[in-house]
Computed example of a mutant assay.
Amino acid sequence: MVTAKDVKELREKTGAGMMDCKKALTECDGDMAKAIDWLREKGIAKAAKKADRIAAEGLSRVAVEGNTAVVFEVNTETDFVAKNEQFLGLLDTMKEVFLQVKPESLEAALAAEKDGKSIETMITEATATIGEKISLRRVAVVTKTDDEMFGSYMHMGGSISALALLKGKQDEAVAKDIAMQVASMNPGYVTRNDMPKEIVDHEREIQTEITKADEKLANKPEKVLAGIIEGRVSKNLQDMCLVEQPFFKNPDQKVGQYVKEAGAEIVSFVRFAVGEGIEKREDNFADEVMNQAFGN
């Protein structure tokens, strides 16, 4: 009988995925040494050696099918892999599986299967074949009602993927415009009401100190100063709120105005930019070439 402890031990020894370790132990009747050899023979343990590499490149995807939409990001070590047919095929498979399974977490997404093979196993096999660390970083699944609509947009083939959910008058062009706005202007929230209080309070503290230090405002009444502070807070926070941003097709108009005139309302959005928040390793170029040439 294969125990969770055995799976954990094998995973620590090889770096292979949980599902692969469980399968290896099952195939080898729980024999740890044979399971390690099994993983090596399948090329999975070899792929595991790449686990400590930094994968900050790759592609994102956004896909819509009926009332379900999915956005996900898959990372690689270099941008060259983004042109690899096997890698692109892997992304297509993920898209198909995620739309069908609707995984609620990254773990569920990795465990999702097609033809009896998990996404995690597919990633491990692709890593072994392509020769670069590949990892599924994040997945977001959004569902809608019949009176809502999706807008989606992928920039530069998947360097950024954005999904917008709107309600009200059905207009695919408007929904896509909002997805493009999200991709290009990177808002943090739909409206000011969605913004955490601590962010607003922090900005107010900063603007209060700046205003107090301004000698030109020294003799202004408290009420006037309060108005100046709130005005500055509003100005500095507006770019973080989608509805307050200038509309990219008409900078004289706010996004909120554009959507309202179209008879719609923004419900939510998702934006994945490849590699954002990942600290990329700075390699010496000469060393990198030598490593590739001699396989170090």
Rank of each mutant, 00 (worst) to 15 (best):
E9G: 01
K13P: 01
M18Y: 01
C21I: 04
D29M: 03
D29Y: 00
D29F: 02
G30P: 04
W38E: 01
R40Y: 09
A47N: 02
D52T: 09
R53W: 04
G58A: 07
G58T: 03
R61H: 08
E65A: 12
N67I: 03
V71Y: 00
E73I: 04
D79N: 13
F80K: 06
A82S: 15
L90C: 11
D92P: 01
M94F: 14
M94W: 04
E96V: 00
E96D: 15
L99D: 01
L110H: 13
A111K: 13
K114C: 01
D115T: 14
S118R: 08
M122W: 13
I123P: 00
T124G: 15
A128M: 10
T129I: 15
T129A: 15
G131I: 10
G131Y: 06
R138P: 10
K144I: 11
K144S: 08
D147S: 15
S152H: 11
G157L: 12
S161P: 02
A164P: 07
L165F: 06
L166F: 09
L166V: 09
K167G: 09
D171S: 14
E172C: 01
E172N: 06
K176L: 10
D177M: 03
M185G: 01
G188I: 03
T191Q: 12
R192E: 13
R204K: 14
K212P: 02
D214M: 05
V224P: 01
L225N: 05
L225M: 13
S234P: 02
C241H: 01
E244W: 05
P246D: 07
K249A: 05
P251R: 06
D252T: 12
V255S: 00
Q257N: 11
K260W: 03
G263F: 12
I266S: 08
I266K: 03
V267S: 04
R271M: 10
G275N: 10
G275W: 04
N284Y: 06
A286W: 12
A286Y: 11
